[in-house]
């Protein structure tokens, strides 16, 4: 009898298709008047010899039924959950609620890249005024009044004695006045020249650099600038120093890199020379040291400067400098 019950349960379990059916099945077997409850009650009428064996059998079946019902129940719950989750499905191919990041201006991106390279080489960052005295912008840098070298830079005047700085070089003088050697800093910033066309804007950016100590040589200038240019434009970049003139450096150099657009074979950008002018540099002119009270017998140093717009134009192949200042969002978002 009890052996048949197992068989019967399995048959009935098979036909259970809803949680309600399962509930009914549980009542039929495990309820107060269920088959197993009844069988346990009937146990008292069995002989004492049969009782332990029968009792064990009934309990086995009871555990068997309980386990199957529990597992069936779990299956139903699982199915229900699946249904709920399916109902909550969204079209994941729709675009997200896009939180577009803004972009840093390309000039500042390049400026940061350059600054970062020098900071890693131990240069600190110095700042100076953009509206500057004639003294710092010219005189102290060995551009005497009424000297043709001043024609190299078309100047905006605030008064006879106050100008918009035409280069970041005045920060050299201010930086040296503030401290004693050793000196190692760069000075990024805005500069102004009275000029506007496809390659000139009245305001642009420069990074100036200065290093002063005992035993600083022209050879060191080449070392630092080559290291910088290799970082900036790649380790295979060819670098060329050639003589030039700046009143505040002597010897002075113009620094070229092999054209990064044509690789040196000659193109429109490098005017078929294969070289691109990228930096002005030189050994600090002793006249400048005298102006800041550094002993020219003990100290030597080098200075350099570069235009950021030009570097950014080369880096991104931009052919019109004015794009930087039109601030068209379609342009700015490209960087």
């Amino acid at each position: 009898m009890i052996d048949d019950l197992k068989e019967k349960f399995l048959n009935e379990l098979e036909s259970v298709i809803s949680p309600a059916d399962l509930f009914q099945l549980r009542v039929n077997y495990l309820g107060k008047k269920g088959h197993l409850t009844s069988a346990l009650k009937a146990l008292s009428s069995a002989t004492p010899d049969e009782r332990p064996l029968l009792g064990k059998k009934i309990n086995d079946v009871k555990q068997f039924v309980e386990a199957h019902i529990a597992s069936k129940e779990a299956a139903f719950k699982n199915e229900e959950l699946k249904k709920q989750l399916l109902a909550g499905a969204i079209d994941i191919t729709l675009p997200g609620k896009y939180a577009a990041f803004g972009k840093e201006h390309p000039i500042n991106q390049v400026l940061f890249e350059i600054t970062d390279i020098f900071v890693k080489m131990g240069f600190s960052v110095e700042e100076g005024p953009e509206v500057e005295t004639d003294y710092y912008n010219f005189e102290a840098l060995n551009f005497p009044k009424d000297h043709p070298a001043r024609d190299m830079q078309d100047t905006f005047f605030v008064s006879d004695d106050i100008v918009l700085r035409t280069h970041t070089s005045p920060v050299q003088v201010r930086g040296m006045e503030k401290r004693k050697p050793p000196v190692r800093f760069i000075a990024p910033g805005k500069v102004y020249r009275c000029d506007a066309d496809i390659t000139h804007t009245p305001m642009f950016h420069q990074v100036e650099g200065l290093m002063v100590d005992k035993d600083i040589t022209f050879s060191n200038l080449k070392g630092i600038l080559e290291a910088f240019l290799h970082q900036m434009f790649g380790p295979d970049t060819r670098v060329r120093f050639r003589p030039s003139f700046f009143p505040f450096t002597e010897p002075s150099a113009e620094v070229d890199i092999g054209c990064i657009l044509c690789g040196g074979s000659g193109c429109r950008v490098c005017k078929n020379s294969g070289w691109l002018e990228i930096l002005g540099a030189g050994m600090v002119n002793p006249a400048v040291f005298k102006n800041v009270g550094y002993d020219t017998e003990i100290y030597t140093g080098f200075a350099f400067g570069m235009g950021i717009e030009r570097i950014a134009m080369l880096k991104y192949a931009i052919d019109d400098i004015r794009l930087f200042y039109e601030n068209d969002i379609r342009f700015l978002r490209q960087f």
Binding site: G122, P182, D213, D215, T217, S219, K222, G223
Partner: peptide, 16 residues
């Protein structure tokens, strides 16, 4: 200028 070697300077460590 091309023949002058490029040599990194021996520099003292800076103090902020």
């Amino acid at each position: 200028y091309e023949r002058i070697p490029a040599v990194l300077p021996m520099a003292s460590v800076g103090i902020e």
